[in-house]
């Protein structure tokens, strides 16, 4: 890790320092994050793991700019995002961040293609046609583009969601349990798709998961426990991760 941290700051996509997050006040206050430092460089595929309540989802929300830390700073590229107002954050999300959700979250009345283009639609921009074609091919959605979500399988829906996330070429894609609602074979396909987007397109991905085998596809696995990073290392295989997790619970 230290080797990577030494590398130049210009390649740093996300940098969080001293991030804490407390919910509620007084006796009922819950400290979800208690001081997290984390830096991600371009092209990195990071899995964030931890038992329930470890703060992994909170961390992801804060890094993505949809929740605010109680204390600490978060940088996306060269912008400090915790001081941005709602409007600035919204505009930042359009260009800098992509999301992949556990429950796909596609709009049911739009076709696969329209769902894919939605972020561009919202931003009032046009997707790069070549890039779009490349993504359609990569996700294998070519024949499904005019279908509505209800006519697609879970895996297909998630592939639409991934294409949607990648189409704006964001600095970082956050994936929240992307395989959590899929069977293992389909899940594997989705993970491969994410892997390819890192390897072939140089996409930076942060994936929150509690599935050791999903995490094993990442270049780096960060373990959280009780709101603190307890382990941060390179690629691990499934059983290794499983053992670490067992130790944490």
């Amino acid at each position: 890790m230290s080797d990577e941290a030494v590398q130049t700051n210009s390649q740093s996509v996300i940098r969080a320092t001293g991030v804490t997050r407390t919910y509620g006040h007084g006796d009922t206050a819950v400290e979800a994050l208690r001081g997290v430092d984390l830096e991600l460089v371009a092209g990195e595929f990071v899995a964030v793991m931890g038992p329930s309540g470890s703060g992994k989802s909170t961390l992801m929300h804060i890094l993505a700019g949809i929740d605010r830390p109680t204390d600490g700073e978060v940088w996306i590229r060269d912008r400090e995002i915790t001081s941005l107002n709602d409007k600035e954050l919204t505009l930042l999300r359009r260009t800098a961040v992509g999301f992949v959700f556990q429950f796909f979250n596609l709009l049911p009345m739009l076709t696969a293609e329209e769902n894919m283009d939605l972020p561009h639609e919202i931003a009032g921009t046009k997707p790069d046609p070549e890039w779009r074609k490349l993504l359609v091919d990569a996700t294998g959605l070519g024949s499904r583009l005019s279908h509505r979500p209800a006519e697609l399988s879970g895996g297909q829906q998630q592939r639409v969601a991934i294409a949607r996330a990648l189409l704006t070429r964001p600095d970082v894609v956050f994936a929240d349990e992307p395989t959590g609602n899929l069977d293992s074979r389909t899940g594997q396909e989705i993970l491969q798709l994410l892997r390819r987007s890192v390897d072939e397109f140089g996409q930076t991905i942060v994936m929150v998961t509690h599935d050791p085998f999903a995490a094993s596809i990442a270049d780096r696995v960060v373990f959280l426990q009780d709101g603190l990073v307890v382990r941060d290392g390179g690629r691990m295989d499934g059983s290794e991760i499983f053992d670490v997790m067992k130790g944490l619970e």
């Binding site: 993505a64 949809i66 709602d86 409007k87 919204t90 505009l91 999300r93 359009r94 260009t95 992509g98 999301f99 959700f101 979250n105 709009l107 939605l118 972020p119 919202i122 931003a123 949607r164």
Partner: peptide
């Protein structure tokens, strides 16, 4: 919420 997350303004 998803639309807000992907950049739709209020």
């Amino acid at each position: 919420g998803m639309m807000r997350a992907v950049g739709a303004t209020r």
